[in-house]
Design a protein around this nucleic acid. Sequence first.
DNA 1: GTTATAGGGAATT
DNA 2: AATTCCCTATAAC
Length: 106
Amino acid sequence: MVFDFLERYFDREPGSISFPIDCSDLKPYHLMVYHQLTRLPFGKTMTYQDLAVILKTSPRAIGQILKLNPFPIVFPCHRIVSKSGLGGFSAGREWKVGLLRHEGCL
DNA sequence: GTTATAGGGAATT
DNA sequence: AATTCCCTATAAC
């Protein structure tokens, strides 16, 4: 379940999501974004704009959607950074920094 | 309708 | 390197 996933994550032994997630009340836009997130492996990052280009939208809209992420860490929105610097984070930038350092991205 | 954003870019200082 | 201004798409109101 979720805790196994998180335990593996914090032990740096990444794995795919092995438990069901209820996406029934997510809109199509959100699914697109979160789906892209699941394709981003541990230790890699992308910019808001990269996602925006892929999904034919604007970087700002990506931010809007990421901040609504219902499952942070399992949908790794912390791996999306600003082009010049670190972006924002719903749980506070401290968390984002911590997570990225844990993944060796800083 | 309008406003606020987890952004980007160009122009200016 | 920092400020200012304008662009954008989406959510919330």
